[in-house]
Design a protein around this nucleic acid. Structure first.
Length: 293
DNA sequence: AATCGCGGCAACCGCCTCCTC
DNA sequence: GGAGGAGGCGGTTGCCGCGAT
């Protein structure tokens, strides 16, 4: 039968927003703040679904939005983050200040996909295109019990292969409960790693001897992986300092990160490597490292 | 000048997760 | 612990503008 609609659709406008509607929404949110989207339309005098208001605000009207073209740096950041997070547009957007998930999603589909294809890289797997066919053949031959490439198994299109690459601890390998039963022993390195990703995706520069005792949760692990990888590659390709803290991820002109949330994330710096430790929800710590060249 | 095709983007839809009771 | 509601997310659709023919 389905769920009840999020709002009374019979009396709601659809389609493009008018200037007047925008003004009403802006005025209302300025006066009352965000929240309670369901009741907002009525309170603001809008004949819109609450979800529609929310989307309009988040994707278009928010004052902190950065309009305009994506920079080359943003492009590369998106690519790195997508490689690690998959189609988690909201997570990616969270690391690009002023950009929205919808905007990034559209940009990915219209620009970056093409860009990667032109580079000979598969936009979904981030592997060289010519290697994909070979890898597929190889996998068919192997009929390995552990699926690894493409073919997202669950609703959420994580890339298990990516996480396998990035994980550097047995705990980290046990998260993929969506897709397969977890195992106490870390799986052997996937054979597809033979494909040269040319991305140096790894936490190798910083080995886990000082990892905190608590196993990471999936989300945190994702974050850590994203941070490590994004930094490593951005750093090696641009020689620019990269802030990986949750609030400031991005390229910076070499200044040491000092941003933090609550418990003041720490950063350990050596000559060529910065390590960021950013507390995430629940007091877990999230570590990553980046090599500065 | 008119038509067609394509690309870009805003908006919608439906499912999922989280939160509250 | 379970149910229901609200918000959030990702995929998809459809409109519009622009260039090619």
């Amino acid at each position: 039968m389905g769920r009840s609609p999020c709002c009374e659709k019979a009396h709601t406008n659809k389609g493009a927003w008018t200037k007047e509607e925008d003004q009403r929404l802006i005025a209302y949110i300025k006066a009352n703040g965000e929240g309670c989207w369901r009741s907002l339309p009525k309170a603001a005098g809008l004949l819109r679904c609450g979800k529609s208001c929310r989307l309009r605000w988040i994707n278009y009207l928010r004052p902190d939005l950065k309009r305009g073209n994506f920079t080359e740096e943003e492009d590369e950041l998106i690519i790195k983050l997508h490689e690690l997070l998959g189609n988690k547009w909201s997570l990616i957007a969270g690391r690009l200040p002023g950009r929205t998930d919808n905007e990034i999603k559209n940009y990915w589909n219209t620009h970056i996909k093409r860009k990667l294809l032109a580079r000979g890289v598969d936009p979904q797997t981030h592997r060289p295109l010519n290697a994909l066919a070979a890898a597929a053949d190889h996998q068919q031959q192997l009929q390995a019990p552990r699926r690894f490439a493409g073919a997202p198994a669950g609703h959420h299109h994580h890339h298990p292969d990516h996480f396998a690459v990035l994980s550097n601890s047995p705990e980290a390998c046990s998260h993929s409960s969506d897709d397969e039963p977890s195992s106490a022993t870390p799986p052997p390195p996937p054979r597809h790693l033979g494909i040269d990703l040319n991305l140096s995706i790894s936490l190798a520069p910083y080995q886990p001897q000082d990892q905190t005792s608590e196993p990471m949760k999936q989300e945190e692990e994702d974050e850590a992986s994203a941070m490590a990888n994004g930094a490593g590659n951005a750093a090696t390709t641009t020689a620019t300092a990269v802030c990986l803290c949750l609030n400031r991820l991005g390229l910076h002109g070499g200044e040491v990160c000092s941003c933090g949330r609550g418990g003041a994330p720490s950063m350990q710096a050596s000559t060529h490597m910065f390590r960021f430790i950013t507390p995430l929800g629940g007091g877990h710590h999230n570590s990553s490292s980046t090599t500065m060249t």
